[in-house]
Design a binder for these strands. Structure first.
Lengths: 336, 336
DNA sequence: TCGTGATGATAAAAGGTTTTATCAGATTCC
DNA sequence: GGAATCTGATAAAACCTTTTATCATCACGA
């Protein structure tokens, strides 16, 4: 660790201390060129002793690889971005790559500014992330000379992107309820113009089959309330299970059901989507929900960038990563 | 913007295109040395035409300033970190500084790894952030040769840190309720071993005076429920206002009050703390709460680092930034 | 006409590392 | 024994900027 007022040690210092030339020192440390085993060991030992750590700037200048990548996000709130960023940096730190985080706040000017700064820094690649799937990434991204990976965001055709497997997640939820003997499953979800909403709804229909019914609204608890009020005040058979488009809606649903004295999970089972723990842990009863494994998405995006920067080819197209069902108590069954 | 397969333009290209030497080009672009006004303009024009952007690595190598800073956080969830990071980068991007985000996940090994990577990159400064105020930052930080600023985290003595003004925030809440005619205000809050909890409780006591009562618990909704059940089932006078330690507790409180048919805000006013919008916007009625202005904290931390890297001196010690009361409907009054 | 100063441009060094080409010395082969 | 081969090490170039020191050129005053 570098202490106050002590100049950083350079490879020059190592060479001098080991009584060897700069190039030999470099070769010894990196295992390149031809070096005598004995000198190699000596150089390495000396380097460790005096606490030499190579200057990444100088190294990057020559190799044209900065060993850093940029992460461009429009998420101000952090619910989606930070878990992904953690996954990205977790996977990259061991390979000596660091991550620049750039919050664009949905402002194109800011996005451009950050992008230029990243390029000036010679980043090895860029990961673009959006909170709304349908927000288009800046068009410049498609033309860059460096690899770009999209996480939770749709890139231009022929690019590499990672998404949660919304369809599989939805099936997970529906199958879980069916497995617990529920036969009248309703789907209350967000706005139909979200791609993810349409995918989940389609999977729900296919998995549940007959009598499928989807209610589109917005992402709020309020909409959950409203939907329940509507459904339970109209004539006809009532659902015995509800698959919600996200945890906020699920929370509204559970609260509304309690208000009209319908027991969860006894009378109606509820499943959410997101596993946003502030919500899903705090509903009464705690919510069984689908986790999108954001950290894993980040990890995979990081690995993809890593391969690309090494010049390896990565298959293009959308990769959808499995969701996981987190069983709590809103459906009864094993954990109920 | 750099297109595929096109080598980046260097200052060498600019010099050649402008028919001038490299040093003149540099001088003209940076306004250093002596240059004829006419040549200066020409060089600048040419540079813009061919899309020259200086290589930050090369620049940093010489100046020993990388124009990048590191942000070290132990927050995996992102609720606190990302707003701060957004503030930091917002303030720095205009000065050409970028931000490395390093999530340490509370793992000392990882923290060390990231720290070393940051130093190898010659970062100009480091911002350390913690979610729990009492988590100690790595000891190595205190010995670094580069400036360190603590945001939402307590550094070693004689260092620079930024916090929300918890006392002022608490007073804001209490005074608001008093101003609306409430006279029996109760404080339901988190664990007493959090410093922020003690500060807020103290300010509440001082501001409210007589009959102050603080109930310590944890940060959950459940605790809010439990506290209400206790208070309203015991004999004696009941509160007409409740100041909660965070929004989750407030939500539990509001739900519990509804369960026992006590009207909010008519019978009891409720104020939260955090302005965590997933919660505060969704309670019924929407929650009046104290916003800690995390983005502003980030901004200030960024500015402090900026000054320090320029060699300016910044007063050491803890700076507490004002909180803001967000008035919604859980207290009645103007917005009720 | 010759120094003096000012002006504007340039060559060269510096920053820390990697890499290519070169070199000296030892070893092998005919 | 001399040429060829191999080994281990090194000098120097390269990456791209900024900065320092140097160098022409011209105008001016003596």
């Amino acid at each position: 660790m570098v202490e106050k007022d002590i100049r950083r040690r350079t490879i020059h210092d190592v060479a001098q201390a080991a009584g060897v030339s700069i190039s030999t020192a470099s070769n010894a440390l990196n295992g390149t060129g031809r070096t005598n085993a004995e000198t190699r060991e000596r150089v390495k030992r000396v380097a460790k002793e005096i606490g030499f750590r190579p200057n990444t700037l100088a190294r990057g200048l020559l190799s044209k690889r900065s060993h850093a990548i940029g992460m461009l996000t429009n998420d101000t709130y952090g619910r989606l971005t930070l878990p992904m960023a953690a996954g990205v940096s977790e996977v990259l730190v061991d390979h000596g790559l660091s991550v620049f985080l750039c919050a664009t706040n949905n402002d194109p000017r800011l996005a451009r500014l950050h992008l230029e700064a990243l390029l000036d820094r010679q980043v090895d690649g860029i990961i673009f992330t959006a909170t709304r799937l349908d927000l288009k990434p800046p068009a410049e991204l498609a033309k860059l000379a460096i690899p770009v990976v999209y996480a939770f965001a749709e890139g231009p055709p022929e690019n590499i992107s990672f998404f949660p497997d919304d369809a599989q997640g939805a099936r997970l939820a529906v199958e879980h309820m069916k497995g617990l003997g529920r036969s009248r499953i309703l789907h209350i979800t967000g706005p139909e113009d979200y791609l993810a909403v349409r995918i989940r709804a389609k999977a729900y229909r296919e998995s549940f089959g007959k009598d499928a019914e989807v209610l589109y609204g917005d992402w709020s608890e309020e909409w959950g309330h409203e939907a329940i009020d509507t459904v339970f005040s109209r004539p006809g058979e009532k659902p015995d299970a509800i698959f919600c488009g996200n945890d906020e809606i699920a929370r509204g649903v559970i609260d509304a059901l309690r208000d009209i004295d319908i027991a969860v999970p006894k009378d109606v089972a509820v499943v959410g989507f997101d596993n946003w723990e502030v919500i899903s842990r705090q509903t009464r009863p705690p919510l069984t929900t689908v986790d999108m494994e954001l950290k894993e998405i980040g990890r995979r995006a990081g690995l993809a960038i890593l391969s690309l920067t090494k010049g390896e080819t990565v298959p293009t197209g959308i990769t959808r990563l499995s969701c996981r069902l987190v069983v709590r108590q809103s459906c009864g069954g094993q954990a109920g």
